[in-house]
Write a protein that binds this DNA or RNA. Structure first.
Lengths: 334, 334
DNA sequence: CTGAAAGCGCTAACAA
DNA sequence: TTGTTAGCGCTTTCAG
């Protein structure tokens, strides 16, 4: 391995000067700079990130904290979209991403511990279960964080405009003539609660009395299975709803399955609106009408916010990304 | 930050002894060990990974090299599945994962450079485009690597039994009575070529003359669009095939779209078999018959192999994972 | 504009 | 069983 000492020796300058060159200090003459850069190139010099981090207390690493209850892990399309957006901007600003788990060194520990040991500069957290004690520990720490789909006073947060999205969905259904509009909820997650709130609010504003029978909680892991079960329950109502707004596309897919198995059709008998606009949505039959979350933007904004607070030591901010109703074929006027 | 010096001072032992305790050395008395461990706990001591890596030349970090031509990035279901499997075993063995890009410090460089600067212990590479010059550089290096869907003499490799998978698909179609079996290929990727080979081989073994008109190359990024275009071309044949085997589920989805837009039905007029078994496959209408790749297993085996070669300095190995035909509703007997 | 000296937190011989 | 010494590769005062 070639170090700055090798370069120093070869050029006749001191390690200090060599270091300065690589750190862009102005107080090095052009000639010196050139000579050092040239020999560095020639020797194949590459800096050692660990050594650098040790002295500077800066790792240029961002931890990615992601725990997903259903075990789908990184497969979840929401997560994947967010991370992709995050990664692009983080990379362009010089940061690398590292996965943070509860384990480190093969042993149980906790997120905060893991972050500290690895010396990450900040953390992006996507974690639906806000009751995780290890998560609380992280929130109380002084490590810069940005939280997705979460509320917090101490840390930066970012999320989609879930309330507005739900309202759009319900209003759309209403405009189509639907009145018996059911909701399959996203459970006790932040997003699930907001979407529920939007549904309730829209119903109220439209003057449609909310029928408690029409509100079924799906599980907070937004699985297809859970959507199916919820729909089966809805199908048992004496007056079956004519439309259902599901808090997630997976829930909607499950609902569609249940409806079909029940011998009914979408949108013939029941109209469906989902939430997310996962890739699959447009390939379903019928193509799913849904509220699109801009996961890529969510991710890139999250990166901007986190890096800002890392570099400027800025206090927490919070941002909301607007959503969009994507009309396809799963609803019909009645 | 509390260091081993703080613990040494407080307990009256030397930093060396403290270090030994944390590294599980046997030559420390039980009493000493206890005392050190207790004060460590009490002081809230956490090791510093950078300092440790600096001396040991071991980072317990594995680089994840993933470049995806279509720009879907981490969203690609194949990638996500593999990484998920990889991550589980790597984490359990004490390694953390870090994304490796061509850039580092916000500047262009190359994978090898990036890996060296970060001091990763090994790299898992998922990279369809094997002509990337930076990739070649990495292959020639001495960094332990495991390559997915790639062939190599110098590095470990792992892939699905693509040839066998294709054969199963074609044989299935043949058994259903199909003779005009077309293939939408996966382009110039390793997997694409193997799947093509399996198709050709099966046709030959079954005594069905391969019709060159029935072989269309999709693009190597396996996009839905590309599948659609390929199918449109197939639809222009004077004798339209009765079945098509697509080298990827996305290609199959595109093919189904084209068929439908053409006023034909799947499987009524044309039967379709895909490859991958992405999550969406079972929710399509008709549910897609496809060759399932065990991405999770692919990932976990890859991790095993890589870690083995990191820790034992073992030379490269290579493994193949078997695939399975999942019969659903997109084919019919004729 | 350049360099000497000290130190980041940890581990690895080697002695004791 | 424990401790001394040196050093991993880099940056940072501070002095020249």
């Amino acid at each position: 391995m070639v170090t700055i000492y090798d370069i120093a020796e070869k050029t006749g300058f001191s390690p200090t000067t060599v270091s300065k060159v690589f750190n862009g200090y102005a107080d090095v003459s052009q000639k010196t700079r050139r000579k050092i850069l040239d020999t560095a190139e020639q020797l194949g010099y590459l800096p050692n990130a660990h050594a650098r981090s040790l002295t500077t207390k800066r790792s240029w690493t961002i931890g990615v904290l992601f725990v997903e209850p259903s075990g789908a892990g990184i497969l979840h399309p929401y997560f994947a979209g967010v991370i992709e957006g995050f990664k692009r901007v983080a990379t362009s600003k010089g940061y690398d991403l590292m996965f943070i788990s509860k384990d480190i060194g093969g042993k149980k520990s906790g997120y905060l511990e893991h972050c500290k040991i690895r010396g990450v500069d900040g953390v992006v957290v996507i974690l639906p279960d806000y009751r995780d004690p290890y998560y609380a520990e992280l929130l109380e720490s002084s490590i810069p964080c940005v939280l997705l789909d979460q509320e917090s006073v101490s840390k930066s947060t970012i999320y989609s405009d879930n309330v507005e999205g739900s309202k759009r969905a319900v209003e759309y259904l209403y405009a189509l003539g639907h009145r018996r509009i059911a909701h399959i909820g996203g459970g006790q997650s932040f997003a699930g609660e907001k979407r529920m709130q939007g549904y309730l609010q829209a119903m109220k504003e439209l003057g449609v009395p909310a029928n408690p029978e029409y509100i079924i909680q799906g599980s907070y892991d937004y699985t297809v299975e859970s959507g199916k079960h919820a729909m089966e329950e809805l199908l048992r109502c004496k007056q079956v709803p004519t439309a259902v707004f599901a808090a997630g596309d997976n829930l909607a897919v499950g609902a569609m399955m249940a409806i079909r198995e029940h011998g009914l059709s979408v949108p013939g008998d029941i109209s469906i609106v989902g939430f997310d606009d996962i890739e699959m949505a447009k390939f379903l039959t019928p193509a799913l009408t849904t509220v699109r979350q801009n996961t890529y933007l969510l991710g890139s904004r999250a990166a901007d916010m986190l890096i800002y607070s890392i570099e400027e030591g800025a206090s927490s901010q919070s941002d909301m990304i607007s959503v969009e109703l994507v009309v396809r074929d799963s609803c019909r006027p009645i």
